[in-house]
Amino acid sequence: MSARVQLASAAGAILSLPARLIEPAMSGIQRGVGIKRMPWVFLLPNLVAVILFALLPVFINVFYSMSGSDRLFPWDRPFVGGANYQSLLDCTNYLDPSTCSRDLFWRALGNTMVFVPVQVICMIAIALLTAICLNRDIVGRGFFRGIFFFPVMLSPVVVALTWQWILQRNGALNGLISAAGLTPVNWLIFPNTAFFWSVFVTVWAHMGFYTIILLAGLQAIPRDVYEAAKMDSASPWRVFTRITLPLLKPVMLVVFILAVIRSVQTFDELYVLTGGGPGSATMLMVQYIYEVGFAAQPRNFGLAAAASLFLGLALLIFTGIQMRISRGGNND
């Protein structure tokens, strides 16, 4: 045998060692469960993880939402049925949070329902614009790609503290405004400006991620399709609306779903930046859940669990609709 053949057979022996080690065990299991049930054996490790860390918490959450008191352990908690849901939904007029017994829940829900569409639309529009710019042959393209992606790698608390430093009363932005001879604004004190900056900062922090996905989508569009459009007298606007957008649709749907889910989950940046304030102007659902369940005394785990199930259900419905639409899109 030549040296090469010997080497190859040695490598083969080493590589097949793990297989040979587990082979007796696996064939024992197969004899025990039967070949038809073997797929379940292979799925088991992941199944256990999913059940333990995803499904089980959901069921525990359901139990918590139906139990009362501030006791932590389930066996200490009295069953209260739908009382927590009743409390959340107890309103004289659903359009006026102040008539609800849990008015903060409704304010947070209202804020979320404004924040999510505004933030997602701004984010996708800006990310798309950025991706289109970065897809061109511009000088320093790699550098700009890095710059736009950089905030994604920052911890949300770092993002929030940085922008707080910029936006606070004696912050960097007001320093520039004063230097320009204008009147400084207390950005985070007024509901409208605080809301604006909440959207701005979260877009700034996350858009890089979506820009990269959209950029990959743009680069997947064949160059010669654009050349054909050029030969076909298409104006840049026609190229964008008739070629780029339709061909980017599958990627846009993914980006949209991810952006909405993430937007609904917004918590840490705003908790540090505005604390949900002024008042409750920038308090979103997740912060409400946190406040009720962990910050308030006594801790109302039951109410927090009910609110988070409410949120989970809303996201589930939304994702279902999206998946149906996207499947329809793919059948085109």
């Binding site: 399709v225 050349e227 054909a228 459009a229 030969m231 076909d232 007298s233 298409a234 008739r242």
Partner: peptide, 26 residues
Amino acid sequence: VAMVFQSYALYPHMTVRENLSFGLEN
């Protein structure tokens, strides 16, 4: 001039009719 590309470069999201008429609509 009109060009026929090596990869055909048809617009994948348009029907054949739309592919043929796109340049004229433009």
